[in-house]
Design a binder for these strands. Structure first.
Ligand SMILES: [Zn+2]
Ligand SMILES: [Zn+2]
Ligand SMILES: [Zn+2]
Ligand SMILES: [Zn+2]
Lengths: 139, 139
DNA sequence: ACCTTATAGAAAATCATTTTCTACAACGGA
DNA sequence: TCCGTTGTAGAAAATGATTTTCTATAAGGT
């Protein structure tokens, strides 16, 4: 996933990759970390060039829409991270908002991550979709 | 996990379970779905008694702090669900904010959920903790 | 009962995010 | 390359969710 691919993907959604957006994008991709919009704005301002905060918001929105950014909710703050590999315990029904608890959990994988990457304090495994009753309801 | 347990858990954190909070809590627990604060406020107002929106915010904050509520970020909105069972592909370092992609995924479990609960459009499996370099850095 | 501490609720304040608006830049076609 | 069309940059204003402030009140411990 290089700059050309990103540009094309954005282009398919009628987003243009301007020099300002490219500056933000480069910072965002290279950093390999998550930012709040304001944090990313500061980060770009320091290392690349001065761009408007609105531009940062719009790029993050665009990237999220095309599946290249993922937002994380941590301690009430929304952080974004560049995330070229789309995919991603609860079952949350996106239609009726119902939540069911699912008690299965692959703890082994958590241990794998723990050994390979760092120390895992906790992990999240959530499923989003449509519950059975919503499915039956409509079609 | 009944009302007494919840009350005790709140109590351990010096939160009091007043009649207003109890009304919100009952609605929240019984609904088995997720709400934005405003949605929960409306919901309680209809079915139980009139309480202040501030009270709803404070209860959600308290429940989240003691681990009884989980926030979901969906389409830019923050939804809360009552979640008595604590636990819950990215590895996110909570200290330096670094994000590493982890390509392992237990797709089998997604299929299990798909069969038992509803249709899974996508799921999220995220790991949060401290990355190796942050660990080495401090202690 | 009395004292200490937390809460309810309304109202005001805050501040992240969105919208608006104008000049300008990117794209596609001629 | 030139031009018309469409999306964008950025500042400024608006929005609106969330937080803070403040006073009376209620909960909990002694
Ligand atoms: Zn799990
Ligand atoms: Zn449903
Ligand atoms: Zn780290
Ligand atoms: Zn997965």
């Amino acid at each position: 996933m290089d700059l050309k691919d990103i540009q094309q993907l954005l282009h398919e959604h009628k987003f243009r990759l301007t020099k300002e957006r490219e500056a933000v994008l480069m910072a965002f991709v290279d950093a390999r970390r998550m930012f709040t919009p304001a944090q990313l704005h500061d980060y770009v301002k320091e290392r690349y060039e001065r761009v408007g905060l609105t531009t940062v918001y719009r790029l993050l929105e665009a990237l999220t829409k095309v599946g290249l950014a993922t937002p994380f909710l941590i301690d009430g703050e929304i952080y974004y991270t560049f995330c070229p590999n789309q995919h991603h315990h609860h079952f949350v029904c996106l239609q009726c908002h119902q939540v069911k608890e699912l008690f299965q959990c692959n703890a082994q994988q958590a241990m794998d991550v723990d050994q390979k990457i760092g120390t895992v304090a906790y992990h999240k495994l959530d499923f989003f979709g449509r519950c059975r009753s919503c499915e039956e309801e409509k079609h």
